[in-house]
Amino acid sequence: MINVLFAATPARWDSYEAPLRAALNDAGIDAHLAQDIPPADVDYIVYAPNSPLQDFTPYTRAKAVLNLWAGVEKIVGNKTLQIPLARMVDPGLTQGMVEWVTGHTLRHHLGMDSHVVNPGHQWTPKAPPLASERSVVIFGLGALGQACARALVGLGFRVSGWSRSAKTLEGVDCLHGDAGLRDALARAEIAIALLPDTPATENTFDAGAFAQMPRGAFLINPGRGPLIDDDALIAALDSGQIAHATLDVFRVEPLPRDHPFWAHQRVTITPHIAADTRASTAARVIVENIRRGEAGAPFINLVDRDLGY
Rank of each mutant, 00 (worst) to 15 (best):
A8P: 04
P84Q: 04
Q35K: 14
R164W: 13
G145E: 08
W123A: 10
P39K: 10
I45R: 00
A143I: 01
I29R: 00
A297R: 15
S239K: 03
S132V: 15
S239N: 05
E170F: 15
G71I: 10
N118L: 11
N118G: 01
R87Y: 05
A200N: 14
A143K: 01
R257H: 12
A245Y: 12
G77N: 15
T9P: 05
A274K: 06
A188E: 06
V267G: 02
P84Y: 03
D304V: 11
Q35Y: 11
I29S: 00
H108C: 11
L106E: 02
R251F: 00
A279Q: 08
A235Y: 13
W69G: 10
L233S: 02
E294D: 05
G293S: 07
D178R: 10
Y44G: 02
P125I: 02
F299P: 01
D173H: 13
A18D: 11
T102E: 07
A34R: 05
Y309K: 04
H115D: 08
A243M: 00
E189R: 08
E288C: 14
G161Q: 05
A149C: 03
V303Y: 09
T201F: 11
A283E: 06
A283V: 09
G77H: 12
H109A: 13
H115C: 09
G177A: 07
N67G: 03
D258F: 05
V117S: 08
V116E: 11
D206W: 07
E202D: 08
P58F: 05
V267T: 03
L247H: 03
Q54E: 15
G145L: 08
P199Y: 06
G154D: 14
G140H: 03
A200S: 15
L219N: 03
I75P: 01
A263K: 10
L237M: 06
E17M: 09
L175Y: 14
L255I: 09
F218P: 00
I228P: 00
G77Q: 09
A232W: 03
F250H: 12
A279K: 05
L110K: 09
D258V: 06
A283W: 04
A8K: 04
L302A: 13
A209V: 08
P39S: 12
N203R: 15
A235W: 10
G154K: 12
T80K: 03
A279T: 11
A166S: 14
L152S: 07
V116Y: 10
G92L: 05
E294K: 04
L93T: 00
I45A: 01
A279H: 12
V117Q: 11
R305L: 10
P38K: 15
T268I: 07
H109V: 11
L194P: 02
A70K: 01
Q95A: 09
M88H: 13
